[in-house]
């Protein structure tokens, strides 16, 4: 391909450049606004302590699965006391389930395995299971979760 017009004046070059710049700026602005429209507002995180039961109700050896305010939780008595694990696999977000016989949390999506303390011991998970804060007031057990 040859050069179509190689002797444009400086004035013409500058005005074309400004035109291109303006057009780019305008289209970019549009694009940005469109993307903003497509991004839903993030809600401010609010944490609340929610009663999950009395300490004597919670099984000593088995895990208790529950869903509180959208958070999927599994309660288990570990070596360091009662822990509320998030069921969300730290790998790619599937849900782990408790294998009572093996005493392990298993994620079926990509065979991630965690031990009874939530530590990642096999498969792709990069870190231990996330935990929610557990608050014990007398007999009652509360779990601090994010509420919308």
């Amino acid at each position: 391909m040859g050069v179509i017009n190689d002797n444009i004046s400086r004035r013409k070059f500058l005005s074309s450049s400004f035109m291109a710049l303006g057009l780019g700026f305008g289209l970019g602005m549009f694009g940005l606004r469109f993307l903003q429209f497509l991004s839903p507002k993030t809600k401010t995180d609010r944490f609340e302590e929610i009663l999950v039961g009395s300490i004597s109700d919670i099984s000593d050896s088995d895990a208790t699965v529950m869903e509180i305010a959208g958070s999927k939780i599994v309660l288990l008595k570990t070596d360091t006391g009662l822990v509320a694990f998030s069921r969300k696999c730290t790998d790619l977000g599937c849900l782990v389930s408790w294998d009572k016989a093996k005493e392990q949390f298993i994620c079926p999506c990509h065979q991630g395995i965690y031990d009874r303390n939530g530590k990642n011991i096999a498969g792709p998970p990069p870190r231990p299971l996330d935990r929610f804060q557990v608050v014990q007031k007398g007999e009652n057990v509360y779990v601090k979760v994010k509420t919308a």
Partner: peptide
């Protein structure tokens, strides 16, 4: 959303 099937 609260249970993963064994084969996905």
């Amino acid at each position: 959303p609260s249970e993963v099937a064994s084969n996905v």
